[in-house]
Amino acid sequence: MIFCSDTPHLPEVAVTILSTNMAAPRVCVPGERLFSTADCEAGPGTYVHHGYIYSCLAGYMHKRKTEGKELSIVEVIRQKEDAVPRIGSIVTAKVTSVSGRMCKCAITCVERTTLREPFRGLIRKEDVRATEKDRVEMYKCFRPGDIVLARVLSLGDANCYLLSTAENELGVVLALSEAGAQMVPVSWCDMQCPKTGSKEFRKVAKVQLQQE
């Protein structure tokens, strides 16, 4: 054997579900038949074929009940999660260029997972704010290099995901001033540089204090 025995790499995202449901979890592999559609519903990590539910990932099978549904849901969970931006998910993006009508950005994280390779996103002028959509000036909302929180609106047409910051909790979370210092938010539309004291316009996100 060429490759010496390395320990498998520890995954980044800890899945808490696995640790709470420790009744001898069942390992399943792609193509393994789990249940028939009469007994359970197919959840993520499974697919349906000819009336039976099969696994499509290599991981642990987990069956859970949800309110309002009589059948429990079968899903297969893996430690490492692949992330692709889906409609409605919150993403973290870095602004790459700003023009009068839109701003282009590179999506670096989807929800809590950091992507290896950034996807491209686009924020149009009318999706920046919820109110006074036509009086938006892009240069007063974003600058290249800002880190923004946005929601995926749709998959877009020209290879970019369409993003929106038209909510209070979305917008710029981290920005560097022209002097190069990290700015402190003052209100929903401007931030202040601690070095020079000057204020710059941004569409600021109202970040809720999170419990770590």
Partner: peptide
Amino acid sequence: IDAGIPMKD
């Protein structure tokens, strides 16, 4: 399978 990409079999 190692990459976690869903496969039918």
